[in-house]
Design a protein around this nucleic acid. Structure first.
Lengths: 233, 233
DNA sequence: ACCGGTCGGTGATGGGGATCACACATCGCT
DNA sequence: AGCGATGTGTGATCCCCATCACCGACCGGT
């Protein structure tokens, strides 16, 4: 609820890789202007409706982006991995942060002040393009979110879609039909816009239909197509 | 509505104003690369999931942006007025158009090919910044849309919010509590994610509570605060 | 071991709105 | 006028899911 921005750990951290996939010259310029710090789990980088101070670029870790309705319910927009800038839209448009960003694990995050971002964008069209590409992806992803959440509406469909989406992200794992379950039922509910209980019941139903198996925090999806068949509904 | 349908689609149109609020030098560069044409009502500039060809910049008129769910239902994202670029996210990210754009009245629209857009952005950081600002606004508006549509959910709340939003856009009219109703109930339903019948019933209810009055296609909202009181819900 | 907190399962209940099914109005067209 | 197309009003029905309520499991701290 009333979480506050953690300003505790301000230690400078050397980051090995060049800045994402930017040309070295520009990456250096960005690197010089940015301040990279380390955050513990649960740190709030910025909160919805705050005035923008600058952008955060995730160098390592995972950050949860969420928005909060007037009734107090929460919707998780997406989980952001390393390489992505956060809060760009707010900084560029000068309006307030459009969501709340909270680390989900210890993370290293670069901070770039508003002035520096705009200055660098004006200076390097290439950098501006990079920034724009990321916002574009965010925009596209948000549009998909809208389509999936509003125009579907059986909750089981949304859950199935979420699980299949997780499968797609798991190109890293050796076992491609396996998913590490890093979210609580409540959080899953916040991702698909439904209640904790519904998620519980749906997952139980999926198990009963042998669409998924769960051992500990590991989900196994033996038949991906069966799950996908729920989506066309 | 159809007084005189302009069907000379490929006719070049001289546009009086400089390009939105861009510096003249850049505006000229953009103007040279762009092709401005005239469209009748109902023209589809691009459709969801098409491969991007370029961006469209609305010079005059109104364009409806919508997305379409797997079940065939439609959600109207927003109505875009003059001055706004369309389809930028798709072009910049190289993915498909994220929505469908359709003119709602005879409009003049500039087209800028993908290559030219990227070239101009790379060349003029200022232009890239302008583009980015517009996407940022789109992104913010989409986030608001998500919050309003998913985290609220009484339909009456959404409708009230829509009406109040229309009031805010009407700074032009002499009578500030008056709204021209340019959408059918079906389209209103598509804006708030509910069915035509629900919109009908809700509007009837609002009238019965004297929250709105309707004569022809003109809505009068005598007590804005009363409507707003429905929103906190 | 005791306890407080977070998490997960599951029943019962109720309501909001989608959906179906009409009827009526309006408008443009031939 | 006559006719289709389109938009609107309203009743009846039904079902999904939010919500309330409660219980058991697990985990860390003292």
């Amino acid at each position: 609820m009333a979480t506050q921005v953690v300003n505790a750990v301000q230690k400078l951290i050397p980051v090995d890789k060049t800045f994402c996939d930017l040309p070295p010259a520009i990456a250096d310029a960005v690197e010089q202007a940015a301040l990279t710090t380390s955050y513990p789990t649960g740190a709030v980088l910025f909160a919805e409706a705050q005035a923008p101070r600058g952008v955060f670029i995730v160098r390592r870790g995972r950050v949860k982006l969420s928005i909060c309705g007037s009734d107090g319910r929460t919707l998780i927009l997406r989980i952001v991995n390393a390489g992505c800038p956060l809060g760009v839209a707010a900084v560029v448009s000068g309006r307030q942060y459009e969501a709340t960003a909270e680390t989900q694990e210890p993370s290293e995050i670069s901070f770039l002040r508003q002035n520096d971002l705009v200055r660098l964008m004006r200076l390097h069209g290439e950098f501006a393009l990079w920034v724009t590409q990321h916002i574009s992806q965010d925009y596209a992803s948000t549009c998909r979110e809208i389509r999936d959440l509003i125009l579907s509406d059986s909750a089981s469909e949304k859950l199935a879609r979420l699980l299949v989406g997780w499968l797609d992200q798991n190109t890293t794992s050796k076992n491609p039909s396996q998913v590490k379950l890093a979210l609580t039922h409540e959080e899953i509910g916040q991702m698909i816009g439904s209640s904790r209980e519904t998620v519980s019941r749906l997952l139980a139903g999926f198990k009963k239909q042998h669409l998924i198996q769960q051992t500990g925090s590991t989900l196994v999806i033996p038949d991906r197509l069966a799950l996908e068949s729920l989506i066309t509904a």
